[in-house]
Write a protein that binds this DNA or RNA. Structure first.
Length: 460
RNA sequence: GCGAGAGUGGCCUAAUGGUAUGGCAUCAGCUUCCCAAGCUGAGGGUUGCGGGUUCGAGCCCCGUCUCUCGCUCCA
């Protein structure tokens, strides 16, 4: 693979796709700011997803929920409580362990197994010190107190930092969809099966983020929750798996960079009946890109239980009443963008021995669609006129600095699919040369036909 | 949180304790009618921050901040 993380990171920074966050203050680990090209590309990715999953899809509708939610939502979903792992370090050898794992292993060995789910951290610590449970690495029993790693960001609603007003930043957008299931169904008169799509920020206090924008603490999700009748769920699971894969191929992800992996039983989350990961071949190895899960009726049932509201669906034709099953394709915007950058990266050696870096973006995703390049600076007036006209339709770049070859290179590097050059003839007969990025082929075209010509490629 | 490593213009890089190099990139001018050409010139750094040793610190010492890599975790 020609792309390496270093090259991608450097290109992103030097060309204005992605900058390190808070850089002038020395940065903030794993935070990233999206520059002029980055935000454009990110918006294009989101727009393409929305178009495919909402605009063009007869089943689905959109939604945009608040990031802050009633904390009970997170009790119902299981994010509070269940997912803060009780971790302790061995003071002697500095290794880290889960207290419940240590105790479970100890109990298993001594044949006295118990259900630990109701135990508090104090219970864990007491049991470990009373039974002098040894560190599996060094054998000593000298642990730090338990530290809780809650993966949710906490903040305070209201001006006093008092615990009664604690709220959380959502760790996934899905719950906002579940709590609005009835609202959306009623107001749109949708019948099951139907889906609700949402794009929005989520926050997770990952202990180990990294790999550029692959894993970050603040990220944007594109999620679909598709509600269907129990029993039809596996059919729909297969349907969305295909649908998602086709979309990735459509926007230009190469099939050889993609791998579908089904979770086996042990790996499945407690609420999930089936999960398939789309993995992408990143320069650092295969990494999860898109997770598709059969969440069963777990979420709606939990919300019914905790809220006391009926979350079931009454089929108006058969009069059957049931809690729908949910198929969830969940995709991270930044992660897809990183995959997309790696997927598009190419270095080519030209006939003259020079190399060019080319980003092979689909025209719908590339930040700029067209660059306007006057061959000489004294053609600037005409060129700016063309720029003004094309800007009505597309994101355009304008560049009159340096040789024409150099300007082509600059556009190749940021993946601009078309370059329009203005020359002497343009001033005479109003035609321009359009140069295509991947083939480097040139065609001559009337300026009046430019917008229509380029539109054909830009629309997915 | 622990362990290790690293911080010199936008990027890369040089500097036995002695005036902070050079390249790329950027900008201006000349030249140039289609794929990183050339020439001339310009701007940009108190070496992450604070202190100490010294006649003198990018370099040595202490502290601090930040980043990177590994470990534990990832609904």
């Amino acid at each position: 693979m020609k792309a390496s993380m270093d090259k991608i990171v450097n290109l992103c920074k030097s060309r204005g796709f992605i900058f390190p966050g808070s850089e002038i203050y020395g940065g903030l680990a794993n935070s990233w700011d999206y520059g002029p090209l980055g935000v454009q590309m990110k918006n294009n990715i989101k727009a393409a997803w929305w178009k495919k999953f909402v605009q063009q899809n007869p089943y689905n509708v959109g939604l945009d929920c608040a990031i802050l939610m009633n904390p009970t939502v997170w009790q119902a979903s299981g994010h509070l409580g269940g997912f803060s792992d009780p971790l302790m370090d061995c003071k002697s050898c500095k290794s880290r362990h889960r207290a419940d794992d240590l105790i479970e292993a100890y109990m298993k060995k001594h044949g006295c197994e118990e259900n630990l789910s109701a135990w508090s951290n104090e219970d864990f610590e007491k049991y470990i010190s009373e039974h002098k449970i040894p560190c599996p690495i060094c054998g000593k029993s000298d642990f730090t107190p338990i530290r809780k790693f809650n993966l949710m960001f906490k903040t305070f609603q209201g001006v006093t930092e008092d615990s009664s007003s604690t709220v959380y930043l959502r760790p996934e957008t899905a719950q906002g969809i579940f709590v609005n299931f009835k609202n959306v169904q009623r107001s749109t008169r949708k019948r099951v099966p139907f889906g609700i799509a949402q794009i929005g920020k989520s926050f997770r206090n990952e202990i180990t983020p990294g790999n550029f924008i692959f894993r970050v603490r603040e990220f944007e999700q594109m999620e679909l929750e598709f509600f269907c009748k129990p029993g039809t769920d596996l059919e729909w699971f297969a349907y969305w798996k295909d649908f998602c894969k086709n979309w990735l191929l459509e926007i230009g992800i190469k099939e050889e960079n993609l791998k579908l992996r089904d979770h086996d039983k042990e790996e499945l989350c407690f609420y999930s009946k089936a999960t398939t990961d789309f993995e992408f071949k990143f320069p650092f190895g295969w990494g999860e890109l898109w997770g598709i899960a059969d969440r069963t009726d777990y979420d709606l049932s939990q919300h019914a239980k905790f809220s006391g509201k009926d979350m079931s669906y009454l089929d108006p034709i058969t009069n059957e009443k049931y809690i729908p099953y949910v198929i969830e394709p969940s995709l991270g915007v930044e992660r897809l963008m990183l995959a997309y950058l790696c997927n598009a990266y190419d270095e080519q050696t030209l006939e003259n021995g020079e190399t060019r870096v080319v980003m092979h973006f689909h025209p719908a995703i590339s930040p700029y669609k067209v660059a306007i390049l006057p061959l000489q600076k004294n053609m600037g007036d005409k060129a700016r006129e063309i720029y003004q006209n094309l800007s009505q339709h597309f994101m355009c770049d304008y560049d009159e600095a340096g040789s024409i070859g150099k300007r082509y290179r600059r556009q190749d590097e940021i993946g601009t699919p078309f370059c329009v050059t203005i020359d002497f003839d343009t001033l005479e007969d109003d035609t321009v040369t359009v140069r295509e990025r991947d083939s480097m082929q040139q065609i001559r075209i009337k300026t009046s036909e430019l917008a229509a010509y380029i539109s054909k490629f830009v629309n997915i």
